[in-house]
Write a protein that binds this DNA or RNA. Sequence first.
DNA 1: TTCTTCGTATACTGACCTGTGAAGTCCTTC
DNA 2: GAAGGACTTCACAGGTCAGTATACGAAGAA
Lengths: 194, 194
Amino acid sequence: MNESSTFDPGTLTPGARRILDTAAELFYENGITAVGVDLIAARSGVTKRTLYNRFGSKDTLVASYLSERDRRWRALVMRYVDARTAAAERLLAPFEALREWSSQNPRGCAFINALAELPEPGHPAHRIALEEKRWLRDLFARSAGRAGAEHPGELAARLFCLHEGALAMQATAPGLDGAHIATGLAHDVVRAAV
Amino acid sequence: MNESSTFDPGTLTPGARRILDTAAELFYENGITAVGVDLIAARSGVTKRTLYNRFGSKDTLVASYLSERDRRWRALVMRYVDARTAAAERLLAPFEALREWSSQNPRGCAFINALAELPEPGHPAHRIALEEKRWLRDLFARSAGRAGAEHPGELAARLFCLHEGALAMQATAPGLDGAHIATGLAHDVVRAAV
DNA sequence: TTCTTCGTATACTGACCTGTGAAGTCCTTC
DNA sequence: GAAGGACTTCACAGGTCAGTATACGAAGAA
């Protein structure tokens, strides 16, 4: 089997694939702690034994869930970034990705939610969530540098702040379109900084 | 006893006061679902029977925890707002409050965390968290109107987005000072809008 | 004195939690 | 036809969860 903490999604058995899809939906909709492995196994049409044979522990399953989400999110962002050529537009591309992502994920950011539920820094899910956020910050910083910003680090931090605000607003202001508001702000910030 | 879902902190018995203080610390540090009533009772130096005699259920205790936090946060914000006279400064005052609050609450926003853990809209804690956020948005909207913004609603939404971004960053970017970054952005946004 | 309030102590319920053991079936591949 | 991976069945361990039952003690107020 696989002793690492996450899994290459191409090597998953059909049962493991169903388990991970089911877990992803249940974790995102109901929270990680609130969902037990019995429910995941039952909804996947699989026994609990199979779940443990494939994933080893609930923590590993949680980590796999976040890891796969991370992979999809990065791919989406890079698709938007690579579709642009102008440096300023590449800097703003993650906000276009965010608008698409938010419309399909109404329960907010899975990584923010996971960090809220699993505060122990040693938890694998905690590490994965922080790495995802760091990746985006670094992407902003590289793009800001290439766009010729006078203070790339500060511009990146500002854009990251707007990004996080949009995600948090999905949970705290369900009636407002946080991604739309943050995108407008991001345009102003970039226009002022480059 | 008290059949309502929360409590007037002035009428708490000494035991109830200790329970609520202990619960607040444990919930904030470790998450709500992760903390059991047995631990809260033991740490408060109180039996579980007393906890249930005072609060009736864990859900009510959670609601009381958030309710008291909400009360303290609103008082802090209004202290900063009332210390200012110029309309633009009153509009920005919540960001000053946020900087003080953030420095004392490193685990991020208890309301965002609670919404992540308790997604059911019917949960009393869910309702309290949403009301807290709505209160701040309304405060921004009133202040924006008095400051003479051309689009008070949009300005309020933008400031709220920055506020939420700062709070989310406490969890997702532990090394950065989200409140500082958001405050800088807020100044620029207000300067451009009024 | 009697009643109420606030608290103690201990034991308990029934459900749920993550995780394991042991044995056996199905299916593909070599 | 042998081997091995994927999966099943089912029982069970060892704990923790929220919440309850019962009985008692101390203090203040009427």
